[in-house]
Each structure stands twice: as structure tokens, then as C-alpha cells.
Amino acid sequence: MEMSGLKNRRILIVDDEQTLLDLVISVFQNDGYQNIAAAKSVGEAVRLAKEFSPELAVLDVMLPDGNGFSLMERLRQDGDYPVLFLTARGEEEDKFRGFGLGADDYVVKPFLPRELLYRVAAILRRTYREEKTVVPLKNSVIDFSRAEVIRDGEHIPLTAKEHALLSALWRGAGRIVTIDALCEAAWGDNPFGYENSLMAHICRIREKIEANPSSPVSLVTVKGLGYKLLVEDK
């Protein structure tokens, strides 16, 4: 999946702490993001958003002239773009409030810069997925928009379940996605009893994406826990 498109997205960062603001900006810039705007207050953020038209906002909750929750609501009046809260308020009530208002993610300080980057990239991929449909693997390429795998020039179609499973694995690319989470992605909210079906689907996916399905290199098993999708540009 092409990352360069994502890095061109306009990101608005709002935090009243100058040092933290500088850090977050540098984290994004070092990762290749080019369009970043920063504000230190609600008023400044609202003004800036009108000129900048952000495609993603990273908001602190506690701001000198208001709070991030109400800021999100005001920003959403001008444009429906994803919002990630980056805040020191880690209590469940705050998280639930943020998610309840429609936030796309909630990161509690202190945070690891890499984690923030992963989460922002995941939101951008989900939101602006039309541009990002091709995922290169070691021996093949997944094209999500066409629901197919291209291996050695051959186009192999994916079933709906395989597509759902690969999407879930791609969202957590490089990380273990548990058996339960995969079953939920493929079979919905009551995914008990599908573990054997999951194994069968994983085998079929491997036959499509791996050069040697019995020694997988892109879709690896983590015994007892789940599976991990290893992509080439990660």
C-alpha cells in the first residue's frame, strides 16, 4: 500500500504545551508528513482549521480556553475528518466520552512516538482507503479494492471471508492479531466456535499469498495467540 499519499494529508495538532507540540510536530515531520499545522488553544485551532482544512486532527483534551471534546464538535461543523485525542486524561470516563462523541482514537500520555504514528497511519488508511489498496508482501501483492492477490503475474480472487481476514490482519500489520479478533472480523459479534474455520481460511489465504504455504513468510502463526501479517514496506 502506498504510504506517500498518506504523508501528504493535512494534519492539525492542538496542544497547549509548546514543548510537546514541538515534539509531536517533529515526530510527524521525521516520519515524512509534510502538511502539519499546530495550535495552542481552541480559538487558534478553530481559526487555523478554516484556513488549513485539515484531514486529520490530533487534539489535547485540556486547553486553556476550552476542552478538546467541544473543540472536536466545532471542528466537525466545518469538515467531517478523523480526530485522535492525545491527552494526559487516561480515565475510562474520558475515553468513553471521547469515543462517544465520535473520536477515531484515544492515546493517553505518555506515549511512544511510534505508537502515535501507527495509530495515525491506521486512521488515515481507514478514512482515505480508496487511494490505498495495494499491499506488497514478500511473494505477492494484495489488492484490496479488487479483492484479489497478484502472485507471479497471476490474479487470484479473494473470497469475502478472506478479504475480511486480510483486512483485519492488515490493520494490525506487523503485530499479532488474536484468533478471537480475526473470528470477530469475519463472523461478527458472536464469533465462538469458528476457530477451525479460521484455520481453514488461513490455509487458503496462504495458498494464495505465499510461495511455499507450508513455510509461510508473510502470514505467520504465533502459536496459541494469533497471526501476524508481515508487509514489505513496514
Binding site: 514543548t19 510537546l20 509531536v24 505518555p110 506515549f111
Partner: peptide, 17 residues
């Protein structure tokens, strides 16, 4: 704990970089 989190984020962020 809230007051510690923000400066700690800066320390962690820059240490990571």
C-alpha cells in the same frame, strides 16, 4: 499523575528520536 504525563511524553518522545 496527570501533570507528570505531559512532560514525560516530551522526555520519551525526544529520547526515542
Amino acid at each position: 499523575s496527570h501533570d507528570i504525563r505531559t512532560p514525560l511524553s516530551t522526555v520519551m518522545g525526544y529520547a526515542d528520536q
